[in-house]
């Protein structure tokens, strides 16, 4: 016997002393409460639905108008099947890897492979976790907000942590500021196509605060993958000035841009 069958018995004033009913009531606290006092609460709830006024519905014409606006590139990308959206995301993630390998650091053979693997795995793993949140279909139950905020925090924190680790070996550079600026722009340029593509593939509208940051977090981490493969400078000062800030500046700029976009589209709507 399940809850629905027991509910029917309670509502019809049936026999609750049968073996099946008693066994269900023994294991189901909800049904036990419902059946208490002769099932008065169950009868009240059953009759209450019709007493509640029917809420008004949105206009189907307005809705169809909104759906008509989904025919642009953004709408088409968002409407792709989730498997395709993931394939495109993985494909675009290859861009910084390929660029980084094509213009790889001269010391790539000397850099400790375990350390390189850990650093790349951290960036890639976090980037994919951000994409997982972003691309997750909204018809699936959403993971807890706490996990989301932990991911965002770790996504911001890890690049700084890696930057301050003792260098694998000392490296010198002629112009520290210039090389840091060059790395910052190179990494950001690698990140931007990923931010744009991942953002376009998302289906969510406004909503959870900070959610809009996810494409930028994923993109900036992917940009750092490219930089890790490309830049031979290992000094913490350089990493702190030219690499890690990508994970902060890009999401901040992106968040500002999305806020402006949303406020403008809100104004247009009203």
């Amino acid at each position: 016997m399940d809850c629905a069958q027991l509910r029917q018995i309670v509502l019809s004033g049936g026999d609750l002393a049968t073996v099946e009913a008693r066994s269900h009531l023994a294991e189901c606290p909800a049904c036990r409460e419902l059946a208490a006092d002769g099932g008065d609460l169950a009868r009240f709830l059953a009759s209450a639905g019709s007493a509640l006024p029917a809420p008004s519905l949105p206009s189907i014409q307005d809705l169809e108008g909104q759906l008509a606006g989904e025919k642009g590139l953004r709408g088409r990308l968002a409407a792709l099947p989730t498997a395709t959206r993931w394939l495109l995301t993985c494909a675009v993630f290859f861009v910084p890897v390929i660029v980084g390998l094509a213009r790889h650091r001269p010391d790539i053979a000397d850099y400790p492979p375990a350390r390189m693997a850990i650093e790349l795995s951290a960036f890639i793993g976090l980037a994919f976790a951000a994409c997982w949140f972003w691309l997750r279909p909204v018809y699936r139950p959403r993971p807890s907000d706490r996990i989301f905020f932990v991911l965002l925090g770790v996504g911001f924190f890890v690049p700084w942590l890696i930057a301050v680790l003792p260098p694998a070996y000392p490296s010198a550079t002629a112009n520290a500021l210039r090389s840091a600026a060059a790395c910052f722009f190179f990494g950001s340029a690698l990140a931007l196509p990923i931010v744009a593509m991942v953002a376009g593939l998302g289906r969510r509208g406004r909503g959870l605060a900070g959610f809009a940051l996810l494409p930028a977090v994923a993109g900036s981490l992917a940009g750092l993958v490219g930089l890790e493969l490309h830049c031979p400078i290992t000094s913490p000062a350089h990493l702190l000035a030219g690499h890690a800030p990508i994970a902060l500046v890009l999401p901040a700029v992106w968040l500002l841009a999305t806020k402006i976009y949303w406020s403008q589209s809100e104004r247009r709507r009203t």
């Binding site: 307005d62 279909p137 018809y139 289906r203």
Partner: peptide
Amino acid sequence: SDDESRDLVQQTFLQLHRARHD
């Protein structure tokens, strides 16, 4: 409010539209 409810129902169908190929 009723307005908020209408908006959420509309957004639900919009999301359904986006997810239809899944």
